[in-house]
């Protein structure tokens, strides 16, 4: 197999990363294919290892609390048109919502990981003040 063919197959596998069982099966298929790449075997191996790390990332412990807090962060960063006071209120509302999500987290680690994201919103508040 040529590297280009391997890379095309790998793109298909990564494109299905939101389906964890399909992604796992795809990585297993890539392991077999990587061993058959004859023009650039080292590069195929490096891309295989990068794909295996992706699999580790998406199968790491999932936290609904942290993901919802991240979603709140994204919304709170989108400043509405309006006065600085209105923008500040919008961001502060996001900070409070993340704190509420953190308080209700099922584990200590999830609560603390969610709270960490409020630091980015403090920077947005500072930015509003400087403008």
């Amino acid at each position: 197999m040529r590297f280009d063919e391997f890379y095309a197959e790998r793109s298909t596998v990564v494109g299905a990363a939101d389906d964890i069982p399909a992604f796992k099966a795809g990585v297993e298929r890539l392991r077999q294919l990587a061993a058959t790449v004859d023009d650039e075997p080292a590069k195929a191996q490096r891309y295989l290892e990068a794909t295996e790390r992706m699999l580790l990332e998406v199968t790491a412990p999932h936290s609904e609390t942290v993901e919802r807090a991240f979603d709140v962060l994204l919304r709170a960063r989108r400043l509405p048109t309006g006065t600085p006071a209105e923008q500040r209120a919008h961001v502060e509302s996001g900070i409070a919502e993340i704190a509420r999500l953190a308080d209700a987290a099922p584990t200590d680690d999830e609560r603390e990981a969610a709270l960490d994201m409020n630091s980015a919103l403090l920077r947005v508040l500072e930015r509003i003040e400087h403008r």
Binding site: K43, Y47, A50, R53, A120
Partner: peptide, 28 residues
């Protein structure tokens, strides 16, 4: 405590890690 300590900013952190991994794979 059993579970790995989670990173924050999940959508951004994973993008940075994957970007780094892809460049590491492409360039010897």
């Amino acid at each position: 405590q059993g579970e790995a300590v989670r990173p924050s900013y999940p959508g951004w952190t994973i993008a940075a890690n994957v970007f780094a991994g892809e460049l590491g794979a492409e360039f010897e």
